[in-house]
Nucleic acid binder design. Structure first.
Lengths: 207, 207
DNA sequence: ATAATTAGCGATTAATAACTAACTAGGCGA
DNA sequence: TCGCCTAGTTAGTTATTAATCGCTAATTAT
């Protein structure tokens, strides 16, 4: 009856189960027992693959990092303007959260970070990278004369990221009652439009 | 040697200790034992005042609610413009977080909310109220011709609140390395300026 | 085919943490 | 001053959960 798999695939299964369970029950209440049950093992079986629970969380963190990097990369296409690139990054990030809703909870779980320095390091680097990508594009847009001269690229990046985070929070506590990526793109467009030199397109400035 | 106090003052002491400990060690790791030690009682002594730990959390939540309402009220003064009122609300909120840094962690702790419906209800109402206060002032500013016509007051309120939340997150993970209220006011002013019809004051729009 | 490797199990343990019951003593009112 | 109420203590229980150890059996290499 004992289904035996290679350590490699089992590890993947465990990480995926952890992501699912962290979503449904919250990351803090992820027990080795629940993971084991979800994946069809006994509780000590988990420790064959991750000697300590911390190790499991680090694997989850690396997984999240890899997913983000992949989505960011895929979002950047030929011939996009800096502004469009920012919008694409926002959309990519929100699509990822939509597909893997455990991510924000894990990313910002103080409980997890307190017990695990590795996680904090990994996630801090990730958020910094995301920030820099957006600030970079804001900077280019400003140089191209698209953004107002009183827009600081770092501030602009912060405002866009805050928008994403805030929207995810609202989405969560609202019971996921709206289209996260669509609403995010809509708000990002507005936010960026406010910072543009001449409100191009639909958003007129008429009295 | 046993210092005996009235239940009323003891309850207050316990709630205050809980807020301090929730800050230093995270809300999820607040144990009745640590609270007892902080307040100078034995662990079962806590249960004399709060029969269940949940009850303690609800008292903490009510305390937070009361603090917020008080600060919001105090922030509104005679003769302020709607824009100034929004800035004052942002500053008040960030001052409160600065003084009681456990608040955001408690407010957004999924772990706590999962185990306690009461908390979720209290906090949801609180956040909704904050949002409505800002949206209301944005609406008035728009009617007064201060904000652009393409600014939706609800969106504006969301963007301001997201800014506050995002800044608190950055403040936390940066190890509280900057002046939270000051930076918040600075960013809120920029954000509001972007949404203003004519960029008044210093922020010129020149090419 | 046989030996070596290793995924997985059963049984247990140690630590943590909420909560309970029975008793003790401080302080206020009569 | 005495007695009552109740804040607080001592000594426990129960439940949960990460982690360990020795063993079994499935897979792989020789």
């Amino acid at each position: 009856m004992r289904t035996r798999k290679s350590a490699e695939t089992r590890k993947q299964e465990i990480v995926e189960a952890a992501l699912r369970l962290a979503d449904s029950h919250g990351p803090e209440r992820l027990t080795t027992d629940s993971v084991a049950e979800a994946v069809g093992l006994t509780q000590p079986g988990i420790f064959r693959h991750f000697p300590r629970k911390q190790d499991l969380w680090e694997a989850v963190a690396r997984r999240i990092g890899a997913m983000m990097e992949a989505r960011w990369k895929a979002a950047q296409r030929e011939g996009m303007s800096p502004i469009e690139e920012i919008e694409a990054l926002v959309e990519a990030q929100l699509r990822l959260v939509h597909a893997t809703p455990a991510i924000p909870a894990i990313l910002f779980s103080r409980e997890l970070h307190a017990r695990n320095d590795g996680l904090r390091t990994i996630f801090h680097a990730l958020l910094t990278r995301f920030h820099q990508m957006i600030a970079d594009r804001a900077s280019r847009a400003k140089e191209a004369g698209v953004l107002r001269t009183d827009v600081d690229p770092q501030d602009a990046a912060f405002l866009v990221i805050a928008l994403v985070q805030g929207l995810v929070v609202r989405w969560s506590i609202s019971g996921r009652s709206f289209d996260l990526p669509a609403e995010g793109v809509r708000l990002a467009q507005r936010q960026l439009q406010f910072m543009m030199l001449r409100p191009g397109g639909e958003g007129h400035d008429a009295i």
